[in-house]
Design a protein around this nucleic acid. Structure first.
Length: 771
RNA sequence: AGCCCCCUGGUGUAAUGGCAGCACAGCGGCCUUUGGAGCCGCUGGUCCAGGUUCGAACCCUGGGGGGGCUACCA
């Protein structure tokens, strides 16, 4: 099973889902959705999302809906819908009955909009697009309210109904949520809900002339379908506030869906965005959505990448919230690993060079038996390969002046013809201008099949085809589409399309392939021996005009050692040393007003608090107040300050001090208990958690949960002895110097005592036991 | 400049207060009728500074860096 399925190492989304299932949120159900907008082709980035949505649901016995997010009629098309369905099925996922369209909900969505108007939370704005933009303000300045914001409920409803009735022309009115024009989140500045658009929708035709916008439609569609976990990419983080607002201000079923964001996939030397892909097609730089150089699923399929390889790749890259750029090598690895056991080996000569066996009878031919798989694959099957006096070998497999370490054919040298004979080069025939025309060799008749009876070692083995029998073929070699690792990293006035790799496609029209392939099913994934994995082009290939796409090369550890192969030159620039260490001393919050300053001074002088701590506490009046009220107990100021600074923010969970249920005196009492050793720090924090969430006095909680610290050596001793005995390997490692393991042992003791042991005593005992 | 999010080997990702692990890439070796596959080994990391803690990648504070947001797109 994949890494993602092991108990530990769940990605953060799966961890959330696991916790929700355990807690019984949504009745333990999991319903996810994949919501593409049908305005382009699905690509490898979508594959990540598809694998996540379908995978995480299936792992929890949940279901995944396929929903076309078709709220913008001007860009969407049925053709894309069909292509997307095909691609998802091909990838290996099944939405069953759960095929939906946002356009299915246009009536319900409209109803929700009226509901919002009726509750005074939405209004019709008749400003122009330009005015709306201006009034929205900027990231640093608040927006201003529209003059239409305070229209009466009745007028809003009337206007909205007339919008729907197509009484107005495009752009004259919009429906907006009434939220907050001064919100620091631009998206909350009265987001648009509906716009007038006289456009033909590919599904609803001309029924509507108003269409909902993403922020309004998406969350509600999720709610309508009973989605539990709505997973989207990072750029929607700010939209979540709107998502929540819409669902919280409308009468929707509870519990409602929650949105979580993860990082989209970025691939090195690739663009993964519909906004980037379409221009490539329009400029004729590639041949459509399924050009095998494209990162679309259709292109990958055409190139010969199996869906299982893409799934394996998605498993490998994980899911997180960090902007990433994945090495192409990782995709290639996934493809090779997947193809290796499934692809039959055949021989194809890409750039042929004639090789004549001078001691082989002219006109004679023979058939050689060649297994389809090497023995380590463990698969049966073979074909016969015709052999004769005139053969074709790869031009690269002969070198007149071989570099050191080259162990293919060279003048006077021997090489093995795969599945055939060992041959020795005796002559090189050149044209007048010095170009090599053909190679003359003698073959050793005793080495049929490739092994030498005298036991001599032949280092090199090369592939070949019979000149007489080989089939002509066109072979298309693909390479990265872009020259730069990040094709998007360009200047303002540059076009990312200028970064296209001119050698991303190399067509070899004169290749020759062994005749056996003519009888194979057209969708066979081959390994052309010593070259790579290839796949018959499903669009352009014909039985009498074979065309093969190179899916991916074989790993070539020889090519890497020879810098002459042009692959160098794109080595990533060494990272600049991190400038992040400005060595600035932590800044102390120096209070600005006189009162705060007085407090600050008192805290530093009277209580001896460090300036940084005093600054934090003195800064705000309510925090100071809380601190000082806690001081009236018996606990000393320093630990109280520490607790307030370090532990309070965590349990406050966004609440203000005024609505915080823990009385300063109770906190002080808790601190005092920890100071006195009645509780250890860890238990103390646990108690604070309880106090902050469900309330109660520290004493009662300590009693109820039995959290009193165990400092008694006689009690701890046997636990430690037992534990050390139970972990002999770790104990030995500790004794041989791996003292970091003390943490492991302390952790074990803490666990077995329910966190109640006195860690200092434990550590002391452990040290003496482990010696 | 305001708000939000994020920083773990070259890359991608685990570890959620207790041994910093895995994968890819790289390097070395073994094996090999594919310079493939496989096997073994090695290199290399918690952005910085302070604090809390017996113990910090993880909690707190500050700094640095990256990304997102100012569409009647999604």
């Amino acid at each position: 099973m994949s890494e993602a399925n092991t108990a530990e190492g769940l990605d953060f989304i799966r961890a959330i889902i696991r916790d929700d299932v355990a807690a019984g949120t949504h009745g333990g159900k999991v319903v996810t959705r994949f919501p593409p907008e049908p305005n382009g082709f699905l690509h490898i980035g979508h594959a990540k999302s598809i694998c996540l949505n379908f995978g995480a649901a299936a792992e929890n016995d949940g279901v995944t809906h396929l929903r076309f997010d078709d709220t913008n009629p001007t860009t969407e098309d049925k053709r894309y819908v069909e292509a997307m369905k095909e691609d998802i099925r091909w990838l290996g996922f099944d939405w069953g009955e759960n095929l939906f369209h946002a356009s299915d909900y246009f009536h319900q969505l409209y109803g929700y909009a009226e509901q919002l108007i009726e509750s005074g939370k939405a209004y019709v704005d008749s400003s122009t697009e330009e005015e709306i933009r201006t009034l929205r303000g900027s990231v640093t300045s608040p927006g201003q309210v529209s003059p239409y914001r305070d229209r009466s409920l009745k007028e809003n409803l009337d206007l909205f109904r007339r919008m729907r009735a197509c009484e107005f022309s495009d752009g004259t009115h919009v429906l907006r949520a009434k939220i907050d024009m001064a919100s620091p989140n631009m998206l909350m500045r009265d987001p648009l809900l509906y716009r007038i658009r006289r456009a033909h929708h590919y599904r609803t035709g001309d029924e509507w002339c108003i269409y909902p916008l993403y922020d309004f439609a998406h969350g509600l569609s999720d709610s309508i379908e009973g989605i539990t976990h709505s997973l989207c990419t990072l750029e929607f983080e700010n939209n979540r506030e709107v998502y929540d607002w819409i669902l919280d201000n409308l009468d929707v079923p509870s519990p409602r869906p929650r949105q979580y964001e993860f990082a989209r996939l970025n691939l090195a030397y690739t663009v993964v965005s519909k906004r980037r892909l379409l221009p490539l097609i329009e400029a004729g730089l590639v041949n459509g959505w399924d050009d095998p150089r494209m990162p679309t699923l259709a292109a990958l399929r055409r190139r010969g990448v199996p869906p299982s390889a893409i799934r394996a790749f998605c498993d490998m890259i994980g899911v997180a919230k960090v902007e990433n750029r994945v090495d192409l090598g990782k995709l290639e690895y996934a493809i090779r690993t997947d193809l290796n056991p499934m692809a039959p080996r055949v021989m194809c000569v890409l750039r042929p060079l004639k090789l004549v066996l001078t001691n082989y009878a002219a006109g004679e031919t023979e058939e050689l038996e060649a297994p389809y798989f090497p023995s380590d694959i463990g698969k049966e099957g073979s074909r016969s390969v015709p052999f004769g006096r005139e053969l074709l070998i790869e031009r690269d497999d002969f070198s007149e002046d071989p570099p050191k370490g080259f162990h293919r054919l060279a003048p006077g040298r021997e090489v093995r013809l795969r599945y055939g004979y060992i041959v020795r080069c005796v002559d090189v025939v050149k044209s007048k201008d010095g170009e090599i025309q053909e190679i003359h060799c003698t073959y050793d008749p005793d080495t049929r099949g490739g092994s030498a009876p005298d036991g001599r070692k032949i280092k090199g083995t090369i592939h070949w085809v019979s000149a007489l029998h080989a089939l002509p073929a066109e072979v298309r070699l693909y390479d990265r589409l872009f020259l730069k690792e990040n094709p998007d990293a360009i200047g303002e006035d540059e076009d990312f399309r200028d970064g296209v790799n001119p050698e991303s496609l190399i067509v070899l029209a004169g290749a020759r392939i062994e005749p056996s392939v003519a009888a194979d099913p057209p969708d066979t994934h081959y390994q052309f021996e010593r070259q790579g994995y290839f796949y018959r082009d499903p669009v352009d290939s014909a039985p009498d005009a074979l065309i093969f796409n190179r899916t991916v090369t074989l790993r070539d550890s020889w090519a890497k050692k020879t810098p002459s192969t042009l692959t160098a030159g794109d080595s990533p620039a060494p990272k600049a040393p991190s400038p992040g260490s400005a060595q600035t001393a932590p800044r102390v919050h120096r209070p600005e007003d006189a009162e705060a300053e007085a407090r600050f001074n008192r805290y530093t002088s009277e209580f001896g608090l460090p300036e940084a701590d005093a600054g934090v506490l003195a800064q705000e009046a309510d925090l100071s107040d809380y601190f000082e009220r806690a001081l009236t107990g018996s606990a000393p100021p320093r630990p109280i300050a520490n607790w307030i600074i370090n532990d309070l923010p965590r349990v406050l969970e966004g609440r203000s001090l005024s609505e915080f249920p823990v009385e300063p005196a109770d906190l002080a009492h808790l601190v005092q208990m920890v100071e006195a050793g009645a509780l250890n720090m860890r238990s103390g924090r646990e108690v604070l958690d309880v106090m902050a969430s469900t309330g109660g006095s520290p004493d009662a909680i300590v009693e109820a949960q039995g959290l009193r610290q165990i400092s008694d050596r006689a009690t701890l001793e046997p636990i430690i002895v037992e534990l050390v005995d139970a972990h002999p390997d770790e104990a030995a490692a500790y004794r041989s110097g791996k003292h970091g393991l003390i943490g492991f042992f302390v952790g074990q003791v803490m666990r077995s005592t329910g966190g109640k042991a006195d860690p200092e005593v434990v550590q002391e005992l452990l040290r003496s036991h482990l010696g």
